[in-house]
Write a protein that binds this DNA or RNA. Structure first.
Lengths: 153, 153
DNA sequence: CACAATTAAGTTGCGCACAATCAAGTGCCA
DNA sequence: TGGCACTTGATTGTGCGCAACTTAATTGTG
């Protein structure tokens, strides 16, 4: 007893739809919580990386976040306009632009400390469950990335 | 032995980041596969709903997809320009715009039948695992939606 | 050293997501 | 029946994500 092929076209069977829906639902929660900090969710992610690493070139930032310069350049410009980061050409390699948080950007970290707890509470999941889900999703991402690059050949 | 609060700000601990990364990795796979059909992923979702329901107002479409008219109006215009759907004001309620697939739009369904199988193959997950993940994600979405609306009060 | 290939950022263009706002149609009810 | 609240969809503006392209700097190679 197998599912008819046609049923695979049903919206409610598609993992990617559930994934997108969950990501957008998260976006709604983050939007409320991050409004106080004056950050969007992608901007918050950039600040997370900068808080952790202090200073790094746009390239490295993009590797951490899976984003390219097409997304990061304008985003970083907005963060710089908000006074949270500074960008300056590397002296050793003029192609590279190093990004680092300003004093104000570092100070924002204190206010961000409670964000993860509030988010975790909103999910209604316990820590083990979150951890488990994260592991599965990362495995999924790896498989999909492999498939994409394999298909390009 | 608990995790220090500061560590919760680490990027690699955040479920939402894994979620977003997986959704974008899916986007990459769908982009390759759907290119033949001339559809983007959100357009494909709209066609899925129309193939299943035949014809329905923008409002209903948005409820199925969790999208509002701000997203759907321009998207539907593009689908109409591509000759895949038609939009017309309902006679019984002049506020409502009914969307239905054209003959060409219905014909596209045949070529879309193999998409889910190709996607499933790219995930490297078996059906049970996909089903399980979908269930968890839907539960997560419900919890997040509840939290958002609760916070608005 | 000259010059082609590579690399880092930025820019442009398109489509999606969503908040806020607007216009038009509907329905209720005093 | 006239007015008011509600519903539906469209529009506007902002920001993200990504492909394609451009520019400038660096590296590798003969």
């Amino acid at each position: 007893m197998t599912t008819p092929t046609a049923d695979w076209l049903r919206l409610d069977q598609q993992i990617c739809f559930s994934l997108n829906a969950a990501a957008r639902a998260f976006g709604g929660v983050y939007r409320v919580i991050l409004k106080d900090l004056g950050l969007t969710y992608p901007q918050y992610l950039v600040m997370l990386v900068l808080w952790e690493h202090g200073e790094l070139p746009v390239k490295r930032l993009g590797e951490h976040l899976r984003l390219d310069s097409g997304t990061l350049s304008p985003l970083l410009k907005r963060l710089e306009a908000a006074g949270l980061v500074r960008r300056e050409r590397s002296a050793s390699d003029e192609r590279s632009v190093r990004v680092r948080p300003t004093e104000e950007g570092r100070a924002l970290r204190e206010r961000a400390l409670e964000v993860p707890r509030r988010i975790a509470a909103a999910t209604g999941f316990d820590l083990d469950e979150i951890q488990d889900l994260r592991t599965r999703l990362d495995r999924l991402t790896d498989a999909l990335d492999t498939a994409t690059t394999a298909d390009r050949e």
